[in-house]
């Protein structure tokens, strides 16, 4: 998706961002059977907004989101906060680069970032004395990367102009 060729988007509304974060947290809080195989939707949405709106969404929001995830999941307080602030930093750092690629190459970048974030939580938990939960844990970030094109399409929907409007 070359920014030069893509259509001009409407400015983002705050409500869109808030609703997307709430929806992502809802998806995360669904009673999944095996959590290791499920992508982290909140992380995905955070990466999306950090890449698209690096001036609006940043490390502070990532940190707060991580803290909420930690408390909601009943895990060590700060583990997701650390991972999400790093994720937000990486996304902002790469935001100028990522948008020049096509959807699948973007997904590759996103997958790498999600893996780094997972690695952070893994290191934190292993340092806290927990056992390694098995290799399926790496399926989550990969699934998240595969969902990236879909997430992009969905989250950009409110910003697209209607065709009729474009003609005028």
């Amino acid at each position: 998706m070359d920014p030069g060729k893509s259509q001009i988007l409407l400015p983002v509304r705050t409500s869109t961002i808030v609703v997307s974060f709430v929806a992502a947290l809802l998806l995360n809080f669904l009673p999944w059977r095996d959590l290791r195989l499920v992508p982290d939707f909140a992380a995905l949405v955070l990466v999306f907004w950090c890449v698209r709106q690096p001036r609006l969404i940043g490390l502070g929001i990532g940190w707060a989101l991580g803290l909420l995830t930690d408390a909601g999941n009943g895990v060590l307080l700060g583990q997701h906060a650390l991972a999400y602030s790093l994720l937000a930093f990486l996304s902002i750092w790469l935001s100028r680069r990522i948008l020049w690629f096509g959807p699948w190459l973007q997904a590759l970048h996103v997958g790498a970032m999600l893996l780094v974030a997972l690695g952070v939580t893994l290191v934190v938990r292993l340092a806290a004395g927990d056992a390694f939960p098995g290799w399926p844990i790496f399926v989550g970030p990969i699934a998240g990367a595969l969902l990236w094109p879909l997430a992009t399409w969905l989250l950009l929907m409110p910003q697209r102009r209607i065709e009729r409007e474009q003609v005028i």
Partner: peptide, 25 residues
């Protein structure tokens, strides 16, 4: 006005998280 550089913010939030982790664990 963009506030502190991202790297500075990263250090701030990472150390805040690490402090929280230690305090909690």
């Amino acid at each position: 006005k963009r506030g502190p550089a991202p790297l500075v913010r990263l250090f701030f939030f990472a150390s805040l998280s690490l402090a929280l982790l230690v305090v909690d664990a």
